[in-house]
Computed example of a mutant assay.
Amino acid sequence: MLLVLWSHPYSAYGQKASVALYELGLPFEQKLVDARDQALMADFRAISPFAKMPALVDAGAGRTIYESSIVIEYLDRLAGGGQLIPADPDAALEARWIDRVVDSYVGWPMNRIISGKFRPEGQHDAYGSEQDAQQIATAWDTLEDRLGDGRTWGAGESFTLADCAAAPILTYARRLVPFGDRPLLKAWHGRLMARPSFRRALEDAAPFGDLMPAPPAVD
């Protein structure tokens, strides 16, 4: 089995996929996506038409999968199933729901805020960035409420797709919108930071320095 993950180690969605690979114990090669390399980007677009990271190539099966949540669904099945996507239908639904909240209401607005920070002077969208920050804050409240049942991980007592998504995205988004007075969210994030699979993903990113255009979280 030869798995190639096209991504960048500092990409939150790329880290989401690499956490899953490390969690499942699946060996893989990471192909660095570098927007400055036009020839490489042409190859990347040939397998990922929207040029979005990550993209997974399973050479043995002759398959290419992109979109991080679908990549993880595929990897879980490849590893035998029932690990990152729980076998129980209700538990699987909860894992997918948390994943969607994290991706859609934290990850996407986070990326818009970050993109805005790189706009030329005079072209910043302060109103749009404030709306995105409010959406992230609403997601923090939603997750805090969901964690109120005493669960250990994002969707229950097992580490799942939900946690693969949350580990990197919460880590970076809290630098833009602090957790504030949300102790359950902070505690969950602390467990994510200590998870060996996420620590390995962070180690992969370390050689690239700190690419996040916001100071480290202090809350």
Results as ranks from 00 to 15, higher is better:
G81S: 05
P27C: 02
V57T: 12
M41R: 14
A35N: 01
A17Q: 08
P216H: 06
P54L: 01
W140F: 10
D181K: 13
G156Q: 09
L3D: 07
Y105T: 02
L26R: 08
L147A: 03
A79G: 06
L56S: 10
S129M: 12
R45Q: 13
S68F: 03
Q15L: 06
S48Y: 02
N111L: 15
W188C: 02
L184M: 10
A91R: 12
P49M: 00
L84C: 05
A91D: 12
P213W: 07
D99S: 15
G116I: 04
A133Q: 11
S115F: 14
D204Y: 09
Q134H: 06
M1K: 11
P120M: 10
Y127S: 03
D37N: 14
A137I: 03
G180H: 07
K31C: 06
A165P: 04
E67C: 09
I70N: 13
E130H: 10
A39N: 11
A155E: 03
R151T: 00
R112G: 04
H124A: 14
A87G: 12
S104V: 10
Q38I: 09
S69M: 08
D34K: 05
A155W: 02
G122L: 05
V106Q: 05
V102L: 04
D145L: 11
Y22G: 05
S115A: 15
S197T: 02
G122C: 10
A155R: 02
A166G: 15
D103H: 04
Y10N: 15
T152I: 09
A95I: 02
K16W: 03
R77P: 01
F50M: 15
Q30N: 06
P168D: 01
G14D: 05
D163H: 09
A92N: 08
L2W: 00
M1L: 10
I47Q: 01
R182G: 01
V19S: 08
L78Q: 05
G180T: 07
Q123L: 11
P89M: 11
D141M: 04
D37F: 08
F28S: 03
V101I: 15
A42K: 15
T138P: 00
I47V: 14
I169Y: 09
L26P: 10
N111G: 14
Y105G: 00
A61S: 12
G150E: 00
A217K: 08
L202V: 13
S129V: 02
L5E: 12
V4G: 00
V57P: 00
M1T: 13
D181C: 05
V71H: 03
D34R: 15
G82K: 00
I114L: 14
G128F: 10
A162L: 07
Q134E: 13
V19F: 06
C164L: 05
R191C: 05
T152F: 00
R36T: 13
Q83T: 15
S115N: 12
G107S: 13
W153G: 02
W188R: 07
I98E: 06
G154Y: 04
A92R: 10
D34W: 03
D163M: 10
M41V: 13
D125Y: 03
L184E: 06
A133H: 02
